[in-house]
Design a protein around this nucleic acid. Structure first.
Lengths: 72, 72
DNA sequence: ATTAAATGTAATTTATATATTGCATTATTC
DNA sequence: GAATAATGCAATATATAAATTACATTTAAT
């Protein structure tokens, strides 16, 4: 689950805690998403996009490995 | 959770069952997502996009209500 | 070098996405 | 208008996203 959350957050001049507050989750959730260790829900993705002023396509994508097989 | 999954699926000439098979979930999951009664995970969203040959931004968006408050 | 802020991460719990089975209803096709 | 395919939906079970708490480490400021 690669993504650009960290880059976008830093660009938006937000700390993990501030972003977490803005989107209504805990800092740990943001941390895990940035580390690629979580598979966030669409609503959270959209909230993050809104908070950092980016679109879904700018922040989330699929890498080739996860495309091949259905592993989660 | 509005989205364009149903339109995109029909455009791609796929039945719910066929799309479900392609993305590796059950037909019920697809049905609920199309009905806007589910908040799918990012991975599933990406798989759906890939299956119907659309981008995230083309299929998923945020409506004004869910933007206001942190419900869900 | 100390202090404080920001981040990584682990354990446990809770909420909910998804699976499974089954049946009813709505299109399609003959 | 029967038969069949496609879809809606309900109940229960399971997997996992997210919360909570807590502590360690890294980074920034003084």
């Amino acid at each position: 689950m690669e993504n650009n959350v960290k880059v976008a957050r830093v660009q938006a001049d937000l700390t993990q805690q501030q972003l977490a507050d803005k989107v209504g989750v805990t800092r740990q959730t943001i941390s895990l998403i940035e580390k690629g260790k979580y598979n966030p829900t669409l609503k959270l993705c959209l909230a993050i996009c809104h908070a950092v002023d980016k679109t879904l396509d700018e922040i989330f994508w699929l890498n080739k490995e996860s495309e091949k097989d259905g592993k989660n």
